[in-house]
C-alpha cells in the first residue's frame, strides 16, 4: 500500500500525469480525464473497499468499471498511484508493447482492469453482471461504474438501465459524468439527452446528484450518501456535474480538448497551473 497523501495533492499530481501522458504520445483524451480526476481520487482513496492484491474475480471487495474507456489517462494514473502497478509504467501509455493501451483492456494483464472498454455503451451491462455475481456469491460489497453523458446516446445503456431496475440490482452505483461535452460539440447540440434525472427515475432508479463534481468534499459526501441508498431495491445513479478539462484553464468549458494533446508550450502552461506535489513519474 502506498503512503497516504492528502487527496488534493493526489488530484494535482494526477492532473500532471494526465497532461504529460497525452503530450508525450501526442494522443489521448485529456478533457474528460481532467474533469473526472477528483472523482477518481475520491473513489479509489476513500470510497472503494479494495484488496491490495488484485485478482480478476474481486470477491470480498468493491469493484469499479470504467465504461467510457477513452478517459484512460486518469484511470491509469489513479490505478498506478493506488498501488496496482508501478507508477513508472505511466511512461509507456499508448506506446507499442505497453500494458497501457489507448483504451483499457484486460488483454495485456494490467492489474486493476477487469473489462475492456472504449467501444461505448457496454460498461453498465458488465457492471450489472458483476453485481449479479456478487449477489450469487453473497458478497455484500458494491459495484461502481462510470459513464460519459454522451455515452448515454448508445442504446445498450437503456437496455441495461431497464434491466437493473426491473431486476432490483441494488448493489450497483452507476455514475454519469455530466460534463455536457462530446467530441463533436456540446451534448445539447449533438444529441440532447433531455432530462437525464427524469429518464433514470422513469426507469425506476434512485437518482443522486453531485452538483459540484470537481469538489472533493462534495464528491465524498455525495458518494457516501449514494452508498447509503444501496440495498433498498433500486439501482443507484449518481449524476456528477463536472467541468471537462478541469484544472487546466485553457482546456475548461469546451469540447476542444476531448481527444487532443497539448503541444510543448501548452504542456508547460498546464503544468505550471498544477505544481508537482507527490512526485512526477
Amino acid at each position: 500500500m502506498p503512503e497516504k497523501h492528502p487527496l488534493q495533492d493526489l488530484v494535482t499530481q494526477t492532473r500532471r500525469d494526465i497532461v504529460r501522458m497525452v503530450h508525450k504520445v501526442n494522443s489521448g483524451h485529456p478533457g474528460g480525464s481532467l474533469g473526472c480526476t477528483e472523482f477518481f481520487i475520491a473513489l479509489y482513496h476513500e470510497i472503494l473497499e479494495i484488496k491490495t492484491n488484485f485478482d480478476m474475480d474481486g470477491i470480498g471487495e468493491d469493484l469499479f468499471f470504467l465504461s467510457n474507456g477513452h478517459i484512460s489517462p486518469v484511470y491509469y494514473s489513479t490505478l498506478a498511484r493506488r498501488g496496482y502497478f508501478p507508477v513508472d509504467e505511466l511512461n509507456t501509455f499508448r506506446l507499442i508493447n505497453s500494458r497501457l493501451q489507448g483504451h483499457p483492456t484486460t488483454h495485456e494483464g494490467l492489474p486493476g482492469v477487469r473489462i475492456a472498454s472504449g467501444s461505448l455503451g457496454q460498461g453498465m451491462s458488465v457492471a450489472i453482471g458483476a453485481a449479479l455475481a456478487k449477489r450469487l456469491n453473497k458478497d455484500p460489497h458494491l459495484v461502481y461504474s462510470l459513464h460519459g453523458d454522451g455515452e448515454l446516446q448508445e442504446g445498450q445503456n437503456w437496455e441495461a438501465i431497464m434491466f437493473a431496475a426491473a431486476k432490483k440490482v441494488d448493489n450497483l452505483i452507476a455514475t454519469v459524468d455530466l460534463n455536457g461535452q462530446q467530441i463533436d460539440g456540446p451534448t445539447e447540440e449533438v444529441m440532447s439527452l433531455g432530462n437525464v434525472r427524469a429518464k433514470f427515475e422513469a426507469f425506476g432508479w434512485d437518482v443522486q446528484e453531485i452538483k459540484e463534481g470537481n469538489n472533493l468534499e462534495a464528491i465524498l459526501e455525495g458518494m457516501r450518501k449514494a452508498k447509503q441508498h444501496t440495498g433498498k431495491g433500486k439501482p443507484v445513479c449518481v449524476l456528477l456535474e463536472t467541468v471537462m478539462g478541469n484544472g487546466v484553464d485553457f482546456m475548461m468549458h469546451t469540447h476542444a480538448w476531448h481527444g487532443k494533446a497539448p503541444n510543448d508550450e501548452q504542456l508547460e502552461i498546464a503544468l505550471a497551473q498544477n505544481p508537482e506535489t507527490i512526485g512526477d513519474y
Binding site: 474481486g58 473489462i115 460498461g123 458488465v126 453482471g129 449479479l132 455475481a133 456469491n137 445498450q156 437496455e159
Partner: peptide
C-alpha cells in the same frame, strides 16, 4: 433479460467476474 441481446452479452461478461 428480455429482448435485449446486447445487454445480455454484457451481463454475461460481468457474471464471469466473480467466477
Amino acid at each position: 433479460v428480455g429482448i435485449a441481446e446486447a445487454n445480455m452479452m454484457g451481463i454475461a461478461a460481468g457474471l464471469t467476474i466473480g467466477g
